[in-house]
Write a protein that binds this DNA or RNA. Structure first.
Length: 441
RNA sequence: GUCCCUGUAGCUCAACGGAUAGAGCGCCGGCCUUCUAAGCCUGUAAUGGAGGUUCGAUUCCUCCCAGGGACACCA
């Protein structure tokens, strides 16, 4: 989740800086985890006497939850049922006929669910890559380089990372299946063919950082052009109140659950006067997404974050909703003033600006350099901090000076311009973070 | 055991080697007959420990302590 949100924000930031971005997503649709999930879900269906026909009618969230449960179950029983689950895994790799029906069904369930998440979070991919389509290529490439880059060991094909100060990893198992690292050898060339990148940024959890070092080393030995072009943005882990979130063990907060909790909290804040039920729903949805995204983006991507449902996703203070609220407040003022940028002439003001007005001016102009810095350092959090500072500075101004009741016509015009500028910069910042704005809330 | 990352108010986060270490949450006390109180103002409190480099260290180096992660057939 955090990688999805961060990746989208970075893509937008890079694009704003003039880069061409190709959004790629890589999904694991083959391998032991799939076998475990399928094995688990079959078991669950058996126990609960759920026929497939009935299951097919469930909605995407319910199907996804079943898959999650199946995966947890498969992991729990892997020790006892190792032989049978491994057998299933082998069949899946071989695309054995008797497994394809259930495989295709559950794969669709999973992809549909991810698709719904992508839509909901406003992200899109130029291309989805699947393990199943790179597995064979990867295996071939590894085998072709066996003896020089890769070595045979105990029936497996390995890469001896120690020569390069790294560690050894298996690329093809004894059973002849390419591992995640083996598949990566097939993925990289395919990606390069689709989009000859200068830099391929893998936005992936920090626990895989040693893994990536090995994979990148192997890649550049196979093909020099990858040297310096592959990069791992080592994302900090999300810790769940002391425990580590893990889909294997089922210690997770689902996105659906999280969002519905936040929506409940938001619904109490929304003033229902003058808003249609549809508008209120929209405010809840956009507000909830904003709250979640902002809470993930506001910290350095490399740092671990502690996640706590109660306090992490804040609706006030340094939060997404605070920015939305400030934006909506600005827009409300502009609406009341019937403000049109074309109606206001830029003219010099002889009067002195107040401290609060100067503070806004001194901050707002920095937007461009902040965006650039965020792009250079891969730190969307800088934009969060900037937008929050600006909103806070504006709110301080708002409480000490009236825009509509300004002392003179000139002051009012200037303050309207200031308000419009703040709204625009906040909106631009949020847009770079992948957060939608609301005109009213 | 080896390697990597991280230790800043009670909690969650900031601070190109530079000024009085900033915010948010929490807690204290204020502010709505006036543009949206999801807001504003006030108070409270911190650099894990010991050395070193430097005019100057939260920032760089060494060691220690604590937490997290990785370390061959998972992804």
């Amino acid at each position: 989740m955090r990688t999805l949100i961060t990746g989208e924000a970075l893509a937008r930031i890079f694009e704003a800086c003039g880069a061409r971005v190709f959004r790629a997503n890589y999904q694991g649709d083959v391998g032991p985890h799939v076998a475990k999930a399928i094995w688990g879900i079959e078991k669950i269906f058996q126990e609960r006497a759920i026929p497939w026909k009935q299951a097919q009618k469930l909605n995407v969230q319910e199907k996804a939850r079943l898959l999650g449960e199946g995966y947890v179950r498969g992991n729990q029983e892997y020790e006892q049922q190792k032989d049978r689950i491994d057998e299933l895994n082998r069949k899946l790799y071989e695309r054995a006929k008797d497994t394809m029906s259930i495989y295709k069904k559950t794969r669709t369930w999973s992809l549909d669910y991810f698709d719904s998440i992508y839509k909901r979070f406003g992200t899109r991919f130029d291309k989805l890559y699947f393990e199943s389509e790179v597995a064979d290529r990867g295996k071939k490439i590894v085998l072709k380089n066996r003896g020089n880059i890769f070595q045979e060991s105990n029936g497996a094909v390995i890469f001896e990372g120690e020569k390069y100060g790294l560690h050894t990893r298996v690329f093809i198992t004894q059973d002849g299946h390419p591992t995640y690292e083996g598949k990566e050898m097939g993925l990289a060339p395919m990606q390069y063919k689709d989009f000859p990148f200068d830099l391929n940024i893998h936005v992936v959890a920090s626990e895989q950082s040693a893994y990536f070092q090995v994979v990148f080393k192997a890649l550049e030995l196979i093909d020099e052009k990858f040297k310096g072009r592959e990069c791992h943005l080592s994302m900090g882990m999300v810790q769940l109140v002391g425990k580590k979130m893990s889909s294997r063990t089922g210690v997770v907060i689902t996105i659906d659950h999280l969002l519905s909790e936040i929506k409940t909290l938001l619904s109490r804040l929304i003033k229902n006067e003058g808003l249609t039920p549809a508008e209120q729903k929209r405010i809840q949805e956009i507000g909830a997404i904003a709250a979640v995204k902002y809470s993930m983006l506001r910290v350095d991507p490399k740092a671990d974050v502690m996640f706590d449902l109660k306090s992490s996703v804040s609706l006030e203070g340094d939060s997404g909703p605070y920015l939305l609220y400030t934006y909506a407040r600005c827009k409300s003022i502009l609406r009341k003033a019937k403000f049109r940028i074309s109606n206001v002439g830029f003219r010099s003001h002889k009067e002195h600006f107040s401290k609060e007005e100067l503070d806004i001016l001194r901050l707002a102009y920095r937007f461009e350099e902040i965006v650039r810095e965020a792009a250079e350092k891969f730190e969307p959090n800088l934009i969060c901090g900037f937008a929050f500072d600006l909103a806070q500075t504006y709110n301080t101004f708002y409480h000490s000076h009236s825009v509509l009741q300004a002392e003179t016509k000139e002051k009012q015009e200037f303050r309207l311009l200031l308000t419009a500028a703040v709204a625009q910069v906040i909106s631009n910042s949020l847009s770079l973070l992948g957060i939608q704005t609301l005109e009213k809330m």
